[in-house]
Design a protein around this nucleic acid. Structure first.
Length: 576
DNA sequence: GCCGTTTTCGGCCCGACTGTTTTCAGTCG
């Protein structure tokens, strides 16, 4: 059993305990253990199986949870979880995902109205029965109905990071068998879309049939949707993501890759262009209309070239002007991973991060970065133990000392992710902000202002002379919370005018700005930073998600400030 | 339930908003 499974069972039980109204500190221990196990570098199952090791040596795992882990390893569940599942149905857990409903409401709904599913919940809201429960009223019914529709929009879609892991897992599994030459994930995943519906895996090799058979036998499949000689479709993993594996002949690999990468609009435009040239394009190749002679198909490059186009990076294939640009030889030279010289947004144990500054620096060094900025939260994020003025100033001094000693082997900028208060003011005094190298201003509260008020708030925040970056500018959480509405173009233009960079936050839950907004902001003259918002050393690896997002925004190295080397970036901070 | 430790039990997480109240419980970040 993998760590994720142990973690899921613990976290799920934590949710059930919350519905049951159990002690909040005990619940926290379950969730804390789940979080630690999920990120633990070793397999918990291996530790449990090793008689010379004790699972309680893992921090956060004591006697109680240690015993639970052994029980899970033995039989896939544990007593407390089983008991809770007798009391509340597993489907009730889904109700917690509805914004505005917490554990108390879920318990009440189940006990009084037997609400166990989202459909039940929708029904009682529409029948105006929710308001019969204590402390619940018409407003809540309305809010819940809205939250249900938001929730439904998100099911069946998965974060890019989830799709990536799925693609890797399935590919690794298939490669371990015979008959595989190449496996490539196509579709919206290859285009770097922030969420992915289903995953298309293209396989070439000498024995395609065996590969499909092998996939159909994959242990993580829980239902096979279709099985033919060219393709197997199945629901895979706990969340039932649809994965299609297609076996292809090697000579049409490029055509299939092009076809299944899409987007639909891009492909329609390409096929239209092909027709005008007396050609026809399908997933098997590019053919002459008159004699059906094949012109291209083995590689994507051949197909684009035969259509008179430069090869178009997948991230741009949305029919948003990329075909014209390819024709005229003015495709952007998109940002690449190796252009990134540092990470400018991360948290440490000072606030809600999991590691120390030194540990974050070590991880950044392993990525060959030249610099990082440590940007913990400010005081109004009390839950995260945000920094007040005194702590911020002391932190700036500590960082100066660290750099002077030079023992970390990487330059550290003292930073802060400073909350933008409701009225647009900064959470810390300007005097304190002036001590720091890099201030990111971010909204973490009052996200439901009307658009005009939110626009004013952001415009006001940009006035602060110490603000260098607008952090996760639209505040969205993918599959969970829509961006807050405001006049984006106006704010982007103002940021450009004041030299405040827009952040492309690479956290797979955010990807904020998205590609579309990045492109708009670029047209307004904005510059950008790419950063991970890491709360753990391994989150520094998330930069690749921000990278594809920036590429979807047509960004080049020159648009992104943290492509500058240490000297130049320091000079920029000094002189602006 | 975990941790740290005055090694046996107390501390752990807090402020603000919302919608419902009539003084506040529940939710969120």
């Amino acid at each position: 059993m993998e760590n994720r499974e142990f973690a899921r069972l613990l976290a799920e039980t934590g949710d059930l305990m919350e519905i049951a109204g159990e002690d909040s500190f005990r619940i926290r221990s379950y969730r804390n253990a789940a979080g630690i196990i999920e990120g633990y570098p070793e397999r918990i199952a291996d530790i449990l199986a090793d008689p010379d090791r004790k699972v309680t040596d893992v921090p956060g795992i004591g006697k109680g949870i240690g015993a639970i882990l052994h029980e899970i390893a033995a039989r896939g569940s544990f007593e407390r979880r089983d008991e809770l599942l007798k009391k509340y149905p597993a489907t009730a857990l889904e109700l917690l995902k509805i914004q505005g409903l917490g554990p108390k409401a879920v318990a009440l709904l189940y006990e009084h109205l037997q609400v166990a599913t989202i459909d039940d919940l929708e029904r009682v809201c529409k029948e105006q029965k929710l308001r019969t429960l204590p402390r619940m009223g018409a407003k809540l019914e309305e809010k819940v109905l809205k939250a249900i529709s938001q929730y439904r929009k998100s099911v069946g879609r998965y974060l890019l990071s989830y799709a990536e892991k799925m693609a890797e897992d399935v590919s690794t599994y298939l490669r371990a068998g015979d008959g595989v030459e190449r496996i490539t994930a196509a579709g919206s995943f290859r285009r770097g879309r922030e969420t992915v519906g289903d995953l298309d895996l293209l396989v070439t090799g000498p024995d395609a049939e065996a590969v499909l058979e092998r996939f159909a036998a994959y242990s993580r499949i829980h239902s096979v949707l279709g099985k033919g000689t060219n393709k197997v479709s199945a629901k895979v993993g706990l969340e039932g993501m649809q994965v299609d594996v297609r076996a292809l002949p090697a000579d049409s690999y490029g055509a299939a890759l092009q076809y299944f990468t899409g987007s639909k609009d891009h492909n329609v435009a390409l096929r239209t262009r092909a027709l005008k040239m007396g050609l026809t394009l399908n997933e098997y190749g590019l053919f002459q209309l008159e004699d059906n002679r094949r012109v291209a198909g083995e590689t994507e490059e051949q197909i684009y070239a035969a259509l008179g186009l430069a090869w178009i990076p997948p991230e741009l294939r949305e029919n948003q002007g990329e075909i014209e640009a390819a024709l005229e030889g003015r495709l952007p030279r998109l940002l690449e991973q190796r252009d990134i010289r540092g990470d400018l947004h991360m948290h440490t144990r000072e606030t809600d991060g999991r590691a120390t500054l030194e540990e974050m620096a070590e991880a950044a060094k392993a990525l060959r970065y030249e610099y990082i900025a440590v940007t913990d939260h400010s005081k109004s994020l009390a839950m995260a133990n945000g920094l007040d003025e005194a702590r911020a100033v002391a932190f700036a001094q500590r960082v100066r000392d660290i750099n002077q000693r030079g023992e970390l082997g990487i330059h550290v900028y003292s930073g802060l992710e400073c909350d933008i208060l409701r009225d647009g003011a900064m959470d810390l005094s300007h005097d304190a902000l002036a001590e720091l190298d890099l201030v990111i201003a971010s909204v973490h509260s009052h996200m439901n202002l009307d658009p005009a008020e939110m626009t004013d708030r952001l415009m006001k925040a940009l006035e602060c002379p110490h603000v260098r970056v607008l952090g996760h500018p639209t505040g969205r959480i993918l599959l969970h919370r829509d961006p807050f509405p405001f006049d984006f173009e106006r704010v982007a233009a103002e940021a450009a005018r004041r030299g405040v960079a827009m952040e492309i936050n690479s956290s797979p839950e955010r990807l904020d700005l998205n590609g579309t907004n990045a492109r708009i902001a670029k047209s307004k003259g904005c510059r950008f930073i790419l950063s991970t918002d890491a709360h753990h050393p391994r989150h520094l690896d998330n930069m690749r998600y921000g990278l594809v997002t920036a590429r979807r925004g047509w960004l080049e190295a020159a648009d992104v400030l943290n492509t500058l080397g240490l000297e130049q970036f320091s000079a920029l901070l000094r002189h602006s």
